[in-house]
């Protein structure tokens, strides 16, 4: 008691600045004690959580496998399947368990195909998990909406098209990206219609992902891409150029030639690359006539084009450029000249 009074007295008699320092020390000390105790709890919780997740995953996985193999031809849903559906439906009421069920479904969905994959999708509806995903679309938090769309895409739920398309011009780009992937994954090239309306840039990352999805389909019939090549959104033009290159769209040759005069340099370069692949001879003459007005990158791209389309009449042009100051131009020119003379 006496010590306590002495401390109070000492504290009251010290200058304010020292009082502040002591208070700070006490706050720091208290924070350390609280965090130390919480850290112990947190680590135990994380470890326990990992074990629980693994246990549930194992349990749900065997339930799902049992569901897949307990069907029969007489009934739409067998008794054993109904028991599993009821169990999963009950478990889905719990957010933690629901997340594990969905991830198990997704993992299994990716490992199997054909009728079994369809059964997984059916189960997604039967267990009402789809309703939870739809409810998440109404969330105010962007990442919850994005994960819901992703889940609907991965489980191939085409029925919610109207609900998902509402987010196609959402201000958050992560949501937009998920919507785009949903559309393309589920509706193939038809899903690319969002390109007609997007005003925000389509990032390179999104473009790669979309093209990867498109290439997985058996039906590789590309729709008319000219409107996209003429889009006012430069990223849409760049994406359409990638489509033209991958799917050898010789039909859009004239639009591609128009793009050689586009105000965006990257579009001009990509257009040259596509024309090079399609071996459009007209491009060579246009570009050769204005070679010195082109940017360095366009010049490099043009020389790549020339590698495939050179003719004897190009010799004078090539000879002119073997003394070019730029190493890469000089090197490319010599390479073409060497092939020309061999």
């Amino acid at each position: 008691m006496e010590i306590y009074q002495n401390l109070i007295e000492y504290f009251e008699n010290t200058p304010t600045i020292i009082q502040v320092v002591w208070i700070m020390s006490c706050v720091f000390f208290a924070s350390i004690v609280i965090l130390t105790i919480y850290l112990k709890f947190l680590r135990s919780h994380l470890r326990k959580n990992e074990m629980t997740v693994a246990e549930y995953q194992k349990e749900y996985e065997s339930d799902l496998i049992a569901y897949l193999y307990s069907g029969n031809e007489e009934e739409e849903i067998s008794t054993e399947q109904q028991i599993i559906i009821d169990k999963l439906k009950n478990c889905s009421a719990d957010k933690f368990k629901r997340r594990i069920i969905v991830s198990t479904l997704l993992r299994l969905r990716n490992e199997i195909s054909g009728e079994m994959a369809e059964s997984i999708q059916k189960l997604y509806f039967q267990t009402k998990l789809v309703d939870y995903a739809l409810a998440r679309l109404k969330s105010k938090k962007w990442h919850i909406i994005a994960t819901a769309i992703r889940e609907l895409r991965q489980l191939q739920v085409k029925e919610v098209y109207d609900e998902v398309i509402a987010f196609v011009i959402h201000p958050k780009k992560e949501i937009q990206k998920e919507v785009q992937l949903y559309l393309v994954t589920l509706f193939n090239f038809k899903g690319l219609e969002f390109l007609n309306i997007i005003e925000t840039p389509l990032s390179e990352w999104n473009q790669i992902q979309l093209l990867e999805v498109l290439q997985r389909f058996d039906d590789q019939e590309l729709p008319e891409i000219t409107p996209w090549l003429r889009s006012t959104n430069d990223s849409v033009v760049i994406f359409a150029l990638k489509l033209a290159k991958i799917y050898n769209q010789f039909e859009v040759k004239d639009t591609l030639l128009e793009l050689l005069s586009h105000q965006n340099k990257n579009i001009r370069i990509d257009a040259i690359n596509v024309l090079a692949q399609l071996q459009v001879i007209e491009a060579k003459n246009i570009l050769k006539s204005k070679f010195n007005d082109l940017s360095k990158e366009e010049q490099y791209a043009f020389l790549k084009l020339l590698e495939n389309l050179y003719e004897i009449s190009d010799e004078a042009f090539l000879l002119e450029n073997i003394i070019n100051e730029d190493f890469e131009i000089k090197f490319a020119t010599l390479k073409i000249l060497k092939t020309l003379r061999c």
């Binding site: 000492y10 010290t14 020292i18 320092v21 002591w22 700070m24 020390s25 720091f28 000390f29 924070s31 350390i32 965090l35 130390t36 850290l39 947190l42 680590r43 994380l46």
Partner: peptide, 27 residues
Amino acid sequence: DYTFAFISAAYLFTVLFTILAIFSEEL
């Protein structure tokens, strides 16, 4: 006594900041 106040504040802040980093890692 002032010295002790300042040194303890500095030391405790350093430790607290490190524990926050451990927390960040754990989470």
